[in-house]
Computed example of a mutant assay.
Amino acid sequence: MTTDHPAQPAHRKDANGNDGLARLLDHVANLPPVRAAIVHPCDALSLAAALDVRDAGLVEPVLVAPRARLEAAAEEAGLDISGLPVEDVPHSHAAAVRAAGLARDGEVEVIIKGSLHSDELMSAVVASASGLRTKRRVSHCFVIQTPHYPRPFLVTDAAVNLAPDLLQKADIVQNAIDLARVLGIALPKVAILAAVETVNPSMQATLDAAALCKMADRGQITGGVLDGPLAFDNAVSMEAAKTKGISSPVAGQADILVVPDLESGNMLAKQLIFMGQAASAGIVLGAKVPVVLTSRADPRESRMASCAIALMLAHHYRQSPP
């Protein structure tokens, strides 16, 4: 296994024939790489990915892991990590804590998950002692492109918050709007999803959706256009919205899909990826630095796109700290 050439994503296009993920890499081509803590990359996949994003000019990796395990994994995979700085720590938990400390002290501007569990990494990031917390709830966004929709869109939160309450959902929505604007969507259209498109007192998701829209009306959520509750079909299909008699600036053309809880969001995102021919990237927002939560099942293009988004955010945070 080698990474001796700049990585490029697979060419998957949206319904208008645009390759948004390839355009993303083109967009960041002129941005200088930032230092990134690769947390516990103690397997061949994580180490290869670190070399991949380095060779693509996205980040300057700092490997945070037990040195002996790193060197053994690199030797077994035939990878040369001799040029990479290493923060030697005793185990994965210490790696997560050390990476958070490096970010707090400004020594790295991005944190990237290696071969440890997401919960272990995020526990260190959100700990009060980490110094990385902001006034905002931490949340995750998938950036998804599918040939069945005319442009890339966001799904949130499908990876961090299990069952968010109303105020937590407000932060999740604001995080997603802020990311969409960094990605170049000037006024993102936000669909608050539920099983139905009408308010039902027996369905908490519909009550939360209505409240979030009123919060946006009152300036408690800014920078986007919200509508909800919307069922998934009404959010992404103009025809479905017209059939239901829904008149909305969001219905059928959503840029952001806000799900009721992690379970529904995770299933939606993975259905799009594994059965909808979707390409994806993912990023954690709400901390002082962007966090990339890669999965062992993620293809190379997803890892590259996620790091490209992290690079954009890191440069944005220099001017507008979260």
Rank of each mutant, 00 (worst) to 15 (best):
A29C: 04
K169Y: 01
I177M: 00
G17M: 04
R136S: 09
R300W: 09
I144F: 11
S130W: 12
V62L: 15
D157R: 01
D55Q: 13
A209E: 01
P299G: 05
S302D: 07
G101R: 14
V236N: 01
D261T: 07
P188L: 11
P41E: 03
V97W: 09
L84H: 10
S128I: 13
D171P: 00
I185M: 14
A77T: 12
T206M: 05
L212C: 08
V28N: 04
L179T: 02
N200I: 11
K13Y: 07
F274V: 05
A127F: 10
R218W: 09
A37I: 03
F274P: 01
D255N: 14
K135M: 03
R98D: 10
C141L: 06
G106L: 14
Y149E: 10
T294I: 07
D80N: 15
L58I: 11
H11A: 12
S115I: 12
S82P: 11
I273Q: 10
G286D: 02
P32Q: 14
G57N: 02
K135H: 14
V108T: 12
A94L: 03
K242S: 11
A77M: 15
I246V: 14
G282I: 05
A65D: 10
L24W: 12
L121I: 12
L207C: 06
L154Y: 02
E301I: 00
A211H: 09
S118I: 09
S123E: 15
M304V: 14
L25Y: 09
S280H: 14
A49L: 10
E301T: 05
A36D: 06
I246P: 08
M122L: 15
A209H: 04
G224I: 07
A73I: 08
P201Y: 09
G57H: 08
L21W: 13
G17P: 10
Q145I: 05
L21P: 05
I246A: 08
L102M: 15
A100E: 06
A180N: 05
S320L: 11
A99G: 11
S237P: 07
R69E: 15
A65M: 04
K244W: 04
D165A: 12
A211S: 14
P9E: 03
I192G: 08
V53H: 14
V289D: 01
L154E: 06
C141Y: 04
S46G: 07
G286A: 09
L116E: 06
L212K: 01
Q168C: 07
D261C: 13
D178I: 03
L121M: 07
A269Q: 08
L70I: 03
A56K: 12
I177Y: 01
A49V: 13
P164F: 12
G276A: 06
P249S: 03
V97Q: 07
A22G: 15
I283D: 02
P85Y: 14
A195D: 08
